[in-house]
Computed example of a mutant assay.
Amino acid sequence: MPVVGKVYLIGAGPGAADLITVRGARLLAQADVVLYDALVTPEMLALCERAEKISVGKRSGQRSTAQAIINQQLVECAQRFETVVRLKGGDPMLFGRADEELRALEEAGIEVDIVPGITTAVAAAAATRQPLTKRGVARSVAFFTSSTAPDEPEHRSAGPAALPATDTMVQYMGGREAAATAERLLALGRRPELPVVVIENCSRPDQRILRLTLSGLAHGLDTANGPVLVMIGEALQRRAHQAPD
């Protein structure tokens, strides 16, 4: 069957439906089919009522759709539908496996457009009123993750050298790995009182903010099943007159 469709990789943002871009919402309303991941909320899916919806959720530690199958589904949908949306939590170009999906679509000769979304780190900084940079304190930020698929052990970070050298560190998908990160930073000589802010379910009604220190983080996190982001650095120090969370 000839290829007739176009695929849009759209960032859904951190969770709240009103944090998607205007362009992203418009394309969702026009979509014929939407392939969405596990972090996309029902409120977001309400923006594409007319579309056929296909769950291709990928969650760490849970049974999920293999990436190769998602790639195949995207190609097949583009051969059946005019407007195909691949809806990803956050921004599709950051920890979203966009490279693999882009390569599969490009190899099949399918036109692709990318609509950025608000990445969770930026939304978390806003939700906690805690800038990631601070004049005279923090001038660099690194986004990183230790998570990897079970069948890709060669991509797993190991040892202190794997941690980025930066003023502010933001660990995506950090619920289970954050304690190990804290232990490695302590071993590298970072001070135990270094400020840490953890946010779970950022921008959603069940959002939860935890403020602790690097030594406290090393003891582990008490989190539920929602996505967790961990921010570490001197810039995360609470301001003297800052309102409570």
Rank of each mutant, 00 (worst) to 15 (best):
A121M: 11
G216M: 09
P131Y: 02
T213Q: 08
G175R: 00
A124S: 14
L186I: 09
A161M: 06
E200A: 09
S215G: 01
I110D: 06
A158W: 00
Q130S: 15
A218I: 01
A162R: 04
G159S: 01
P153V: 10
P192E: 11
A123Y: 08
A182T: 07
A218W: 02
A182K: 07
Q207K: 07
T120D: 08
Q130E: 13
Q130C: 15
I114K: 11
L188A: 12
V196N: 11
R139L: 03
G159P: 03
N225G: 14
R139A: 14
I114Y: 04
A162D: 12
R129A: 14
R190W: 08
V170S: 05
E177S: 14
P195A: 09
Y172H: 09
D167N: 12
Y172K: 03
Q171M: 15
V196L: 07
T148I: 13
G226Y: 05
D151W: 12
R208M: 00
V122H: 09
L214D: 04
N201A: 14
G220W: 05
Q130A: 14
I199M: 10
R129M: 12
A161S: 14
G175S: 03
R208A: 07
L186W: 04
T120R: 05
L221G: 01
D222W: 00
P131C: 03
H155K: 14
S146G: 15
Y172R: 03
G220S: 04
T168Q: 09
T166F: 07
I114R: 10
G159K: 00
A124Y: 03
A165L: 13
A126E: 06
S146D: 11
N225S: 14
E154I: 00
D151S: 13
T181L: 01
P164G: 09
R139H: 13
I114C: 10
R191M: 07
A126S: 14
T166L: 09
T223H: 03
R204A: 06
E183Q: 15
L105T: 15
G159C: 01
I110K: 05
